[in-house]
């Protein structure tokens, strides 16, 4: 079930540079949420900016009824969001989308994240860890974040930075590819920039590994009503907001 809920901001803090972490108090949405789903957040109650902003659920905290999000300030909406104070209320619609399929046990799993695409991987790791062997691969431009949290939820975390400031210097897909050649990953999950997802789709194909990718698309409604976010999956028109954002990489067309 989807809800519109006025959520009180419990915390809104800068993590590094343009990356923020927010905790939202929720009574309804939090109870129905799962890894890989997202929220549509209205950053103020004015007609400008008009649309809600789609933001992934980073963590579901059922003990304290909190939904955690990580977001990057890229434009006016996310900038306004970064100014919101503790105690203020935001209108949130959710949980939205299908989320990751985490119904697996005893597998050797690779979870790959790039940039702000790392945000939804925390709840994902939570739902896979201990039932599976979880290997996490994180790619950043320069400054890493969320590494400690993900270390608690996995068997190993490998990091790369483009600048070389931390971990392997280069793209995380290079680390992934090397590990796949040497080891035996059974299943992949990925979220990040389109270029990274395309590369992972190719790797998954080459080594014949199943892979779930979480996609982004510009959205109007977020609930399947406007057809703004259509994408071709197995030759059929699907909607990123309800049929996704998670798709099997071999079924989804990532080319423009």
């Amino acid at each position: 079930m989807k809800y519109i809920e006025n959520c009180t901001v419990n915390k809104n803090e800068k993590i590094i540079d343009d990356i923020y972490r927010m905790e939202l108090k929720s009574n309804k949405i939090v109870k129905d949420s799962k890894a890989g789903q997202f929220l549509e957040i209205k950053v103020n109650n004015l007609n400008y900016p008009l649309l809600r902003r789609p933001i992934s659920i980073n963590e579901i905290n059922l003990d304290e009824n909190l939904l955690v999000i990580y977001y990057k300030t890229v434009g006016k909406g996310t900038k306004i969001l970064s100014q919101v104070k503790k105690g203020e209320k935001l209108s949130v619609v959710g949980p939205l989308g299908n989320g990751f399929d985490t119904s697996y046990e005893g597998l050797n799993i690779g979870i790959v994240g790039g940039g702000i695409g790392i945000a939804p991987l925390v709840e994902l790791a939570k739902s896979l860890y201990q039932k599976n062997n979880v290997n996490i691969y994180l790619g950043f431009n320069d400054k890493p974040y969320l590494i400690n949290r993900l270390n608690e939820l996995s068997n190993i975390v490998k990091v790369s930075t483009v600048s070389g400031s931390y971990g392997y210097k280069g793209f995380i897909t290079e680390v992934l590819e090397k590990d796949i050649k040497e080891g035996n990953l059974d299943l992949l999950y990925a979220c990040g920039p389109k270029g990274m997802l395309k590369k992972i789709k190719d790797i998954a194909k080459e080594f014949n590994i199943r892979c779930q990718v979480s996609l982004e698309e510009r959205m109007g409604c977020g609930i399947g009503a406007c057809l703004g976010c259509s994408i071709e999956v197995n030759g059929q028109m699907k909607k990123v907001c309800v049929d996704g954002p998670v798709f099997w990489s071999n079924e989804v067309n990532l080319d423009e």
Partner: peptide, 20 residues
């Protein structure tokens, strides 16, 4: 009908443009 290529939605001041 399959519609147009995405992006199909753009936000503008107090409005949206669509090309579904």
């Amino acid at each position: 009908k399959k519609g147009n290529k995405t992006p199909r939605i753009a936000e503008t001041p107090s409005g949206i443009l669509n090309s579904i």
